[in-house]
Design a protein around this nucleic acid. Structure first.
Lengths: 230, 230
DNA sequence: TGGATTATTATGTACATACATATTAAATCT
DNA sequence: AGATTTAATATGTATGTACATAATAATCCA
């Protein structure tokens, strides 16, 4: 029976940080000293402190040691589910409607975010996600067919591009930008909300290495909140 | 020289996931088998796969083994810096103005989010954060003086409550809710933006165990975007 | 057959040791 | 003194072994 787990070491470290036994800006003992003091292996202390450093509560550098940051930059974890699961997790019935699908030349801003030549034709998808039959989220997406050729034969009337891409595109990197925009007249119509309503929006771009796959703007119906914990 | 690191094992696992050599929904080999195949210790494989599971790319269960999820719920990491550092990271000059400070009974909704009795007087802070002398973010905060008694003697005209609390409050848990709201007349005035402009807002509540510390709404000037990577 | 019990198994973790690596501090040279 | 080289050191990681734990599969019994 080993009474000391890395979690217990972490809890003790957290206690010392919170009580300022390890003051902000100050150095904390070496792993080896802590291991001896707490009666465990250095690897156990390492696991505990490494984890705290990843969440921003400690700063570690080789040779320099470990210190408590003065202005910790805490890290919160955002869960990015497919929209269907997001709706279903709220206990609501999910619905989906493909509004438009075409292959056309993208506007300059889309070209820029995807770093593509202006003359590359892309697939544009416009779709509406519903929760309990009321508009939940409007998906305005551009897809690079060179990155996912199978998309041209995919039936996007029953499965959303959001879901299809998660399952079929081997993406390696993604950027997110969260913001607020006003509902334009057409957007308001589609989301069944007043024109000028404030919409929470997510602009997402995903890549397979250097190859751009897709850029999407998700406009959520008024009142939507994205949640996170720390 | 040990050629095989846990990062290289992770890269190989990622490759197999992306190429569908390990298909979605399918089981992958045991750690022990992988370790033998790749020529490393099981602990190395464990570290690599555990990390992938934490980011949502694998699902692991004791005895059941490891599988590739059909609908992976990816985890993005959000960095939560103090506002001053957020501004300075953009290469802009940070400014700060305390607009109001009073001790008063909070409205019912604030009581509810903080789970406090309605008759508990709280400290209310209203402050403006500036970037290059233009309004950047409006901070509307309620602080529980029972959780941080030193706040009553803190000078919040030179250091923001945001920063003071990060440095002085030992919080253990926090909830975030991101959304979009319309600028009311008073908010528009303070942020120097048109009334009815869409504002990206963050509602944050922090706790020390079960003791509520503070609830704050941050309203960012129009155009602000919060970014994350995956 | 059905329900409880027991065995099995894959992951999770602890440990001691050894070495790698980044970074700082000391020493050396010009 | 200032620049360069060298030593020292704290963290980072790999390994083999051992055992813990959770979850499943097999078994047993009524």
């Amino acid at each position: 029976m080993t009474a000391i787990t890395w979690q217990s070491v972490q809890a003790e470290a957290l206690r010392r940080i919170r009580t300022r036994e390890w003051p902000p800006g100050g150095q904390i003992p070496h792993e080896a000293d802590l291991a001896e003091e707490l009666g465990c292996a250095r690897a156990t202390v390492n696991r505990a402190l490494r984890d705290l450093a990843e969440s921003g509560l400690l700063e570690r550098r080789r040779k320099a040691g470990t210190r408590v940051p003065l202005n910790p930059v805490r890290k919160a974890t955002l869960e990015i589910p497919i929209i269907r699961l997001d709706v279903e997790a709220r206990g609501q019935a999910y619905g989906y409607r493909l509004l438009a699908r075409e292959t056309t030349l993208p506007p300059p801003d889309v070209c820029a975010t995807l770093k593509l030549q202006a003359k590359t034709p892309l697939i544009r998808i416009l779709a509406l996600h519903l929760a309990d039959n009321t508009p939940f989220c409007l998906e305005d997406r551009w897809i690079n067919p060179l990155a996912v050729p199978e998309i041209v034969s995919a039936d996007l009337t029953t499965i959303s591009a959001n879901e299809w891409l998660v399952q079929n595109a081997a993406f390696s990197r993604g950027d997110f930008a969260f913001g607020a925009t006003l509902a334009t007249d057409t957007t308001a119509l589609r989301l069944s909300c007043p024109q000028g309503a404030p919409l929470f929006t997510v602009d997402r771009t995903t890549w397979a290495a250097a190859l751009p796959i897709t850029a999407v703007r998700l406009s959520y119906a008024p009142g939507y909140q994205m949640r996170a914990e720390i």
